[in-house]
Design a protein around this nucleic acid. Structure first.
Lengths: 193, 193
DNA sequence: ATAACATACATACAGAATGTATGTAAATAA
DNA sequence: TTATTTACATACATTCTGTATGTATGTTAT
């Protein structure tokens, strides 16, 4: 069985990331041991430390993949938005839907900020989805649909609300109540007619 | 020098919690080693493991103290509120003020949820401050000052916004922008007149 | 095609941290 | 005062992390 190095590396990285995701979710980053991870992948620690500088680097790769998946799901859901406000509501719902993936909320909202730091997580989010939210808000404000407010802080506060909703839903909470509240929040920020 | 066991234990627990807080803040829970903590307290690991079952138990004691301090600061600031809505705004500002204590935002909002879990942190918050916020919202809704919404989800979403604000401020952000946004959020949820 | 080299991965090792077990001194109880 | 519990220190066993080293497989050049 002869495989190119590129194919081998790609498959190995994917296998390590999948195993890492599994252990990180079930045990948390701190209790996720590298022996457990490589056992789940059916390899040795040599492979892990060949492809990733350390346990944190593997974790970061997993986080980036998760963040990318969420961003892709939101992008796919917000094609052809009627208006910026509707786009925000739709994007929010798509976010909550995407965050239902098992373990994803814990990875992106709890472990990630603790392990990589809030700043690094913000940078990852910015590279993926957060910029879209901020741009959507700014656009809605420019069109006079939303009250003029500091766009950065507004985007982050709304994002924090959606994050908390995602965590609650991951914990078994009812989706509808949270969608209701988030929609009310957005409507409250809309200009009066 | 003769001291009662109760006094000894109290002083030792306080010293360990102070040293733990210091190291947890500077290094994070994972990188905070028990040798470093007891060195900062000027004792040995024997004292630590006599008073706390493990490193996590010490951490939880520190977290509970921090949460209690925040709750006390909010309580002190919200004596004699004009109306429920004003109480919410005042409480929010007091929260942001209290969260300026160095390292507090990281402890309560980043490390705590990761180490103890979001559920345990919610329980700690509930025992301290979160119940007040929820009650304030419910009261404001009952008086017709706020739109009727699921009180739990609403309280958590607002709390998440204030949390994010506290983290941003801890990271050096300007307080005013965040107060503006949070006040706008509350005003948006108020009933129209 | 084969020698020379690089890449992929496994094995072996050194250091450090955690939690426990055990030992000693001080305080409380009998 | 003696007995017993409490407070703390020291010593130990286990386990994990990251690195160093070794081997096999793939790639490049002559």
């Amino acid at each position: 069985m002869r495989r190119s190095n590129e194919a081998r590396s790609g498959a190995m990285r994917a296998a390590l990331m999948a195993a890492g995701r599994e252990i990180f979710v079930s045990a948390g980053f701190a209790a996720a041991t590298t022996p457990a991870i490589v056992a789940a992948a059916g390899v040795t620690r040599g492979a892990l430390y060949h492809h990733f500088t350390d346990k944190t680097a593997l974790f970061e790769a997993v986080i980036r993949a998760e963040a990318g998946a969420v961003a892709a799901a939101i992008d796919a859901a917000t094609v052809a938005p009627a208006d910026p406000l509707e786009a925000l509501r739709t994007g929010g719902r798509a976010f909550l839907q995407a965050m239902k993936a098992p373990g994803r909320a814990r990875l992106l909202l709890v472990e990630g900020p603790a392990v990589l730091g809030p700043a690094a997580m913000a940078a990852i989010d910015a590279a993926t989805g957060a910029a879209t939210l901020r741009a959507g808000l700014a656009e809605a404000m420019a069109q006079g649909l939303l009250r003029p407010l500091p766009p950065d802080a507004t985007a982050q506060v709304l994002s924090a609300g959606y994050d908390r909703a995602a965590l609650a839903i991951a914990g078994g909470a009812d989706v509808d109540a949270w969608v209701t509240v988030m929609d009310a929040l957005l409507e409250g920020l809309a200009t009066r007619r």
